[in-house]
Design a protein around this nucleic acid. Sequence first.
DNA 1: TCCTTATTGATACATGGTATCAATAAGGTA
DNA 2: TACCTTATTGATACCATGTATCAATAAGGA
Lengths: 146, 146
Amino acid sequence: MRSRTINPKDWLTALVESGVRVTTVQETLIDIFAHSEYPLSAEQAWNVARQSRPKTGRATVYRMVEKLENLGLIRRVHGYQGCSHFVPTLPELMMLFICLSCGRAEYLDSQPLDDLIQQSEHTSGRHITDSRLQLFGACSDCQQKA
Amino acid sequence: MRSRTINPKDWLTALVESGVRVTTVQETLIDIFAHSEYPLSAEQAWNVARQSRPKTGRATVYRMVEKLENLGLIRRVHGYQGCSHFVPTLPELMMLFICLSCGRAEYLDSQPLDDLIQQSEHTSGRHITDSRLQLFGACSDCQQKA
DNA sequence: TCCTTATTGATACATGGTATCAATAAGGTA
DNA sequence: TACCTTATTGATACCATGTATCAATAAGGA
């Protein structure tokens, strides 16, 4: 169910196309977010970044996180541990699932849900432009262990 | 679509049953949250509360908000303005809709969605215990004006 | 290689939320 | 009703997370 096809190179390309200069901090942070299986906060990303790049500034990381979010490359997780963690965005629109036991983020096909939403738009007169759709629980691994 | 049946008296009852003493701050805050059409933050609730009760303490309001949330009487809105706003919880499980134009919160029937989720549980081996389901866009009023 | 300028990192600051603790007031009891 | 115990409150100080500022640095075109 977790078929992530995230290519850090594409992220760099997206950044360049947004008109910024390519720096080593960017590459470091892109790598961190693109490869983490767990939602990361800016603070956590900062800590990870300094392991390989000790002088990395805190503000810089916060700025990068904001930029990555604005470009749609990472996506905020609205969870129990707060709302300041991020996961990579998949190319397709997918629903997030967070395992409360192991903390991992999984992506679920949200097509049926999208259909449902589109249907309701017609009948209600509302116009839906964005959604925040997340599920919490136990992933199948953790479910089996329990 | 917005059929709110919230009774402040029930909230007081719920508080009492949770084993706390009934105070005037509680009544003030319950009234504020139960009657607001817009999601309110603790800070906003504090400001409103002080209009009728000037000496109300900030920490007290934060404490009450936490208590009301724990009792399930109010519910956190995960939105664009941050994740620190709250709306009254309806007796039934409903999906939240926030109008990005007027800011009002509406409640949508989430039964079809619940069915969908339950279905996916069977096929995936996951166990879903909680969900964060919110939609954003323009309500039918704002949609017509545009 | 040089030069311009976006980006960075250090610092100070703002905001949102929490811990502490003496003063207050609920509400049971005599 | 007055009293007493103790939960709750409000003021303050505090902490954590995020943002503004600005001189120093480094991208990358000329």
